[in-house]
Design a protein around this nucleic acid. Structure first.
Lengths: 232, 232
DNA sequence: CCACTAAATGAATGCCATTCATTTATGAGA
DNA sequence: TCTCATAAATGAATGGCATTCATTTAGTGG
């Protein structure tokens, strides 16, 4: 017989019932507070402590709950990451599709997409392999983008490949944003790599504030031009 | 007084001395067996058990050594990953630079780069933020590519940004290769996302063996064309 | 009022990277 | 040949982690 449990009123989860349970018992709807609450707590934790601080124990603590309680609502930590990912997908700006020329819409989408995930790079390995079924907001983003591509005249068989190509570039570029400024400092090997060292110096001499932005712009414009050329 | 140690002859490390120690004592050179041995063992472990199986304990075991012994040679597990990364960089095919037209050289380099790292995606977050000083083989690759870009007439200030743009695309694409085949199956949300679902079906109808290759080719050719257009 | 069940609990479990005081073994110099 | 310095190996911690499980709590429909 374990020790007496915490006061029941002290728990904060608003809608602590599984889908199945809710359906069977016909509860007062909701369904939001549960996943929404976990997502909000996870996001706050990530903001304050970063992804290193996002542990099941810390998450439970910030929800005033025992770690094991989380497993009544999620199968694993991966599910928490999925929740966060899907929330972020809704922050990506797809508004220009339908209201602006395709090139401009892609540009805004891509910059926004990269900016959102550059602050959440630990999610990238998760997203990249994530079946879209598990992430409704992400799927909604794909739908909007897809309509935009179709309306712009991209042949239907190429739409998915084009999106994937852009997304791959975006994910890779999100990492760049977080790279240290001196990442290309060749140090003691400088004499052995004159061409590369010269190129690094030459870029540095331009004095760009965010070198990652230059590379991103360069690649993005090339992709937009190249993919746009395939329109009918 | 701890128990008696293992028989000394049973350890396998060939050159167990730090740089400093070797320098000071003027040992018979070598220096290879240490890092090379660890790298080889790590690679074998990764091949057999994947990155989940690459633990310090497992690595030590495959070297017939106690886990703590590894810390006489490496600061942390990250150093092991670095060693592996740098070894892989040497496998990337840069041979076409200097012997073939720029476009073709970039193509071969990019495909080879993607293929190598698609089997080592857990390293991508490490590489993306890795100061090149710590990875001589990686730096050597950059040098070769850089010379190729310069000889092709890419303006010096743009060389690094062009390489970064390509690399970002390559890293992102490496993840794609590992994605499950049904990643874009919209499942029960299909009716809600007609355009995307149609695009997915349309791509599937083409019957490509490896859809990731289609997207990679599409993006890569766009990048080559776009970056190539900036040559002087 | 009872039976059912979702949800919460805390105490494991097992894995992990990393640290540390201690011991072993080897080469250099006397 | 002996001695000393030191690199390297050892095993026993440490602390953190995700996850599991038997048990208890509390709310709902009958």
């Amino acid at each position: 017989m374990p020790a007496s449990p915490a006061a029941p009123g002290s728990t904060a989860l608003g809608e602590p019932r599984s889908e199945a349970g809710r359906r069977r018992a016909g509860r007062p709807v909701g369904g939001v507070l549960d996943k929404a609450g976990i997502t909000a707590a996870a996001l706050e934790l990530i903001e304050k402590k970063g992804y290193v601080g996002l542990t099941m124990a810390a998450l439970a603590r910030s929800l005033n709950v025992a770690p094991s309680a989380l497993y009544n609502h999620m199968e694993s930590k991966r599910d928490v990451l999925l929740l966060v990912e899907d929330h972020l997908a809704a922050l990506v700006d797809v508004s220009a599709f339908g209201s602006e020329p395709w090139e401009e819409a892609v540009r805004k989408w891509a910059w926004s997409y990269r900016d959102v995930f550059s602050r959440h790079t630990p999610l990238i390995p998760v997203i990249a392999v994530l079946p879209v079924t598990d992430a409704p907001q992400t799927l909604a983003m794909y739908e909007t983008v897809s309509v935009g591509f179709r309306d712009a005249g991209i042949p239907e068989e190429r739409i998915v490949s084009s999106i994937v190509a852009l997304e791959s570039f975006i994910f890779g570029s999100a990492y760049d944003v977080t790279a240290p400024a001196d990442i290309f400092d060749s140090g003691s090997m400088a004499e052995a790599t004159p061409s590369f060292t010269g190129a690094v110096r030459s870029l540095a001499a331009q004095g760009h504030e965010r070198p990652a932005d230059v590379a991103f712009s360069l690649g993005l414009e090339a992709l937009i031009a190249g993919l746009g050329a395939l329109r009918e």
